[in-house]
Simulated scan of single mutants.
Amino acid sequence: MAENMVTKAPLLGEPLAVELMNTFYLDRGSVQEALDDDAAVAAWLRAVADRLAAEAGLEIEHLAENEVGTAAGALRTLRDALRRLASEMTDDPRPPVTAPELARPEALAVLNASARAWPELAWPAAGEPARLYRGSGTAAEFAVQLIAHQAVELFAGPDRARLRPCLAPNCPLFFVKNHARREWCSAACGNRVRVARHYRRHQAARQD
C-alpha cells in the first residue's frame, strides 16, 4: 500500500533543489516533516519523477519503498544542508525547522559530496543532440546526486538573487521570485497574510 502513497510535500513548480528544501507542510499551524520515512521519500521521488526523467532519463514512477534504501537518509541530509545555505543566502529571519546546529562549512561539504552527477551529450540516431545527466548507484541514489548538482547551479547562478524565504505566518518554504509582484510562495500563503492583516486591523479598531 505504501507504494501508492501520495507525498504531503507541496510542489510549487520551483527548481528541484527548492522543491526538496520545501519538503515540509503545515498542519493546524504546525510545521510537519514530509520525508519522515522511506515510504514518504519514495512518494516524493515519484511525485517529481517526470522532472527527473526529463533531466536524466531516470524512470522512477513506480519506485517502491524498499528501493529507497540509504538514499532516504542522504536526501534528508541534503535537504537540511540546502536549507542552511539558502537561509544564509537570503538573510532568512525565520528560525530553522531542522538541523539548527548545522554550520555553513558542514552544509557545503554535504552538498559538494552529494553533487556527483555529470552531464553527457546524448545524440540518438533519429533525434537531436541533448544534454542528459548521468550518475551512479540506484535510481534513488542518482536522484540525490542530480538534485545536489542542480542545487550547485542554483546557488552559483543568477537565480540565487531571486531566491526568497516565504514570510507568511508559520510558512517554512522557499521560492524563486519569478516576477516582480510575487511576495509569497503560493496564493494560499498570500491569502493567510491578508487574513492575518485583516484580523490585526480589526483587533486594533476594537481597542481604540
Results as ranks from 00 to 15, higher is better:
P165N: 12
P96A: 07
L173M: 12
W184E: 02
A126W: 12
P10R: 06
P95A: 14
L102E: 01
G135Q: 12
R84P: 00
D37H: 12
E14M: 09
D91L: 12
G29S: 05
R182S: 11
R51F: 04
A109P: 01
H149C: 04
C166R: 09
E183C: 04
A148C: 11
T7Q: 07
E19V: 08
P15S: 02
F175W: 02
A40I: 00
A151D: 07
L82K: 12
S114M: 10
P10A: 01
R197L: 08
P158Q: 08
R164N: 08
A47K: 05
R46Q: 13
A168W: 00
P100Y: 03
R51C: 03
T138P: 10
A204W: 00
E19D: 14
R76H: 00
A86D: 09
R116T: 15
S186C: 10
R79H: 05
V193T: 02
V31W: 13
Y25F: 15
A34V: 09
E128T: 06
N22A: 06
V144F: 06
A103E: 14
E128D: 10
E128I: 01
E88Y: 00
C185T: 07
G190C: 02
V18Y: 07
A204N: 11
S87G: 15
S30C: 03
D36Y: 10
L102Y: 09
N112Q: 01
A86Q: 07
D38T: 11
R162K: 15
A125S: 13
R134T: 07
A126H: 09
L163A: 05
S87R: 15
V152D: 04
D36T: 14
D159S: 08
M89E: 14
L163C: 09
A130W: 06
A107H: 09
R51W: 06
E141G: 15
A99C: 09
R104C: 01
T90R: 05
A204L: 06
N191K: 13
A2N: 11
A126C: 00
A64L: 11
N170G: 01
F174P: 03
A151E: 04
L20E: 03
F142E: 03
L163P: 05
L35Y: 03
R76L: 07
C185P: 04
A99N: 12
V176M: 03
L11D: 07
R201S: 11
D36S: 15
A139K: 08
A54Y: 03
E88L: 09
A125E: 15
E106Y: 06
P129T: 08
T138R: 13
L45W: 04
C185Q: 02
A34P: 11
L132I: 12
L108N: 14
W184T: 02
L26G: 03
L63H: 10
D91A: 13
E101D: 15
A34I: 05
K8A: 13
G137L: 01
L75I: 10
N4P: 00
A71G: 11
A53D: 09
W184H: 04
E128A: 11
Q145S: 13
